[in-house]
Design a protein around this nucleic acid. Structure first.
Lengths: 197, 197
DNA sequence: ACCATTCTTGAACGATCGCTCAACCCGACT
DNA sequence: AGTCGGGTTGAGCGATCGTTCAAGAATGGT
């Protein structure tokens, strides 16, 4: 018995993520979803419970993919800072051509979710905090390797990376100016090595 | 003849702005608006044409208020950089207690508006570009006054301010951590005076 | 071959959406 | 006092929203 003739959950989540990422939670109707993932309402509700339930899984799926991309950038570069820089360039300059939105889905959700959808908002905040913590761990590793001065405030630098990344993605959506974005990224990472107090 | 017994347009825009700022364009229903501004649908549509038309005026009203606040911060400080810093602190630390949202309404709209609502999106982008240009003019003034080195790239610095401001407001909504925000603002403005190549 | 069980289907529910319009109200002018 | 005309009103339009559920299709066990 059990799982017979089921859908491919990963594929469904991929398609749903693209849709939510492009249009946002509120502006995506369940009928949009039905069409995009080729499932009927009953099946969707059996599998995910509600539109919110599906979105919750989408948020996690998105964050997981982001983490994977960061890991890939780090292993492909000899230095931690080089890896972080590659990650920024990937999200902002290279990957953005086929991405559903210039923005981070988490930042977009943080923006549109009301306090009334408190569970989704909590989930979003938790995933963003996890991203910042991932940055902090990498910064710490960079300090350990001597890429950054030993007095580096790792929590502050991770926070700054998070702020810059979200700000840059907003800026890209506002202007579409990749040259300007590229210039800011360069200044951001060039200003790092010989660190402060 | 003409305008008899009319509503106070400014007061209406203030209330509508608070509402849209809090809930966003899509999540705000026309019935929410009717209640908030105490007008019936017919009057609203006679005055503003549509929900989009009202929102367009709200965006302009909001941007105008932001500009006023920036001007006030600049005249209240002896240096341009001090004025800019006060503006950042006002939006992020002081003013945010009674604001409808931690986020910038323009950034929020940029995030949720689809390409199909192209006129609103265009308006939003134009108002953000105007803000960046206002920053650039102030940075130029700071260079002229010797607060910044003569080789300062004013366009780049203005862009960085814009990116940081939006990023910081997102971060505040994500974490609610004013101490962290304050620390980033301090580092941001302390790193400026003795400028680069 | 036949039941038992699970998954899928799509019509349809009540709620709410943005918006319209015929009827009404009321100050301005003669 | 009477008429005119723009401003206001609120019931209600058709569309769409998130969600449900009875009925059908598909599978595994015997």
């Amino acid at each position: 018995m059990a799982n017979t003739a089921k859908f491919d959950r990963r594929e469904v989540l991929e398609k749903a993520t693209r849709l939510f990422w492009q249009k946002g939670f509120h502006a995506t109707s369940t009928r949009d979803i039905q069409q995009a993932i080729d499932m009927r309402p009953g099946s969707i509700y059996a599998a995910f419970g509600s539109k919110s339930g599906l979105f919750r899984e989408v948020l996690r799926f998105y964050a997981e993919n982001m983490t994977d991309q960061l890991t890939r950038c780090l292993t492909a570069n000899s230095t931690v800072l080089g890896g972080l820089r590659a990650f920024f360039r990937l999200l902002l300059l290279e990957g953005s051509s086929d991405a559903p939105s210039e923005l981070c889905l988490l930042a977009k959700s943080l923006s549109e979710l009301d306090e009334e959808e408190s569970e989704l908002l909590r989930e979003t905040r938790a995933l963003l905090a996890a991203t910042e913590e991932a940055f902090r761990l990498q910064v710490e590793k960079a300090v350990g390797r001597g890429e950054l001065g030993p007095a580096t405030d790792t929590a502050l630098l991770a926070r700054q990376l998070q702020i810059q990344l979200i700000g840059l993605r907003s800026y890209l959506r506002a202007t579409g100016d990749r040259g300007a974005v590229s210039q800011v990224i360069d200044h951001l990472f060039e200003g790092l090595p010989g660190d402060k107090s």
